[in-house]
Amino acid sequence: MPETRPPVPPFTAETAAQKVQGAEDAWNTRDPQKVALAYTPDSVWRNRDEFLTGREAIVEFLTRKWERELDYALRKSLWSFTDDRIAVRFQYEWHDADDQWWRSFGNELWEFTPEGLMARREASINDVPIAEADRRIFGARPVEDRGVEIDLR
C-alpha cells in the first residue's frame, strides 16, 4: 500500500491551509529525516539554483542548509491552490557563523500525488541582511498566530 500523508488532494481552502501549516511545523523542527517524509521517494526540487531528486538528496540538502542557517525559524502562508497544487509565500530568519542575521523571502510551488506526498517543489528565495534587533520570527509559530498573514517586508 502506498504511503499517505494527509490531507490529500483534491484540496479545499481548509485542507490546503492545513498542508501549509504542517509543512511549516515540520521545517521548524530542522530535522531533515522528518521533513523528507513529506516528499515522494523520487520528488524533484528546485531550490534557488540547486536541483535535487529524491529523498536522500533532500536529506543531504537540508542537513547542509541547517548547518549553515543557524537558529532557523520559518513562517509560511497559503497563496493559492488547485486540486493537487499549492502556492506558498514564506519568510524565515537565521544567522550565519559570523552572527549576521538574515531574513529570507520566497515563494514555493508544490505539486502533490493523490496520496498527499509532494512530488515537486520549486522555491525562489532572496536573502536580506537584518540586525538582530529587527528579528520578528522566534521559533515555531504559537498556536494563536496560526493563519495570521506574514508581513511583506
Rank of each mutant, 00 (worst) to 15 (best):
M1T: 05
E3P: 03
T4I: 03
R5S: 15
P6Y: 00
V8H: 07
V8K: 14
P10N: 09
F11G: 15
F11A: 14
T12C: 04
A13F: 07
V20N: 05
Q21G: 10
Q21C: 12
A23Y: 08
A23Q: 12
A23L: 15
A26G: 07
W27G: 03
W27R: 06
W27P: 05
N28Y: 02
N28M: 04
N28A: 04
N28T: 04
T29Y: 02
R30T: 13
R30G: 05
K34N: 04
K34V: 09
K34A: 12
A36N: 02
L37V: 01
T40D: 00
P41R: 01
D42W: 02
D42I: 01
S43M: 01
V44W: 01
R46I: 02
D49C: 08
E50P: 02
G54S: 06
R55C: 04
R55Y: 04
E56H: 02
E56I: 02
E60G: 08
L62H: 03
T63H: 02
T63N: 06
R64P: 02
R64C: 04
K65D: 08
K65T: 12
W66N: 02
W66L: 06
W66F: 10
E69N: 03
L70W: 07
L70S: 08
D71G: 09
Y72C: 10
A73Q: 00
A73V: 01
L74P: 08
R75A: 11
L78Q: 05
S80E: 06
S80L: 06
F81P: 13
T82C: 05
D83I: 12
D83R: 13
D84P: 14
R85T: 12
R85H: 07
I86N: 14
I86Y: 09
I86G: 15
A87C: 04
R89A: 09
R89P: 11
R89G: 11
R89T: 12
F90P: 11
Q91T: 15
E93F: 03
W94F: 13
D96L: 12
D96S: 11
D98T: 15
D98I: 09
D99F: 14
D99Q: 13
Q100C: 10
W101S: 05
W102A: 05
R103L: 07
F105D: 08
F105T: 13
E108F: 01
E108C: 06
E108A: 10
L109V: 13
L109D: 13
W110Y: 08
F112G: 15
F112I: 14
T113G: 00
P114Q: 03
E115V: 03
E115I: 03
E115W: 00
G116S: 01
L117S: 02
R120T: 13
R120F: 14
E122G: 10
E122W: 08
S124R: 10
S124A: 08
I125Q: 15
I125D: 15
N126E: 01
D127R: 13
D127C: 11
D127W: 11
P129V: 04
P129D: 00
I130S: 09
E132H: 07
A133Q: 12
A133E: 11
D134L: 06
R135E: 02
R136G: 14
F138S: 09
A140H: 01
A140W: 01
A140K: 04
R141S: 00
P142V: 11
P142C: 11
V143L: 10
V143M: 05
V143T: 09
E144Q: 10
R146K: 15
R146M: 14
V148S: 09
V148F: 05
E149I: 14
I150Y: 03
D151N: 04
D151C: 04
L152G: 13
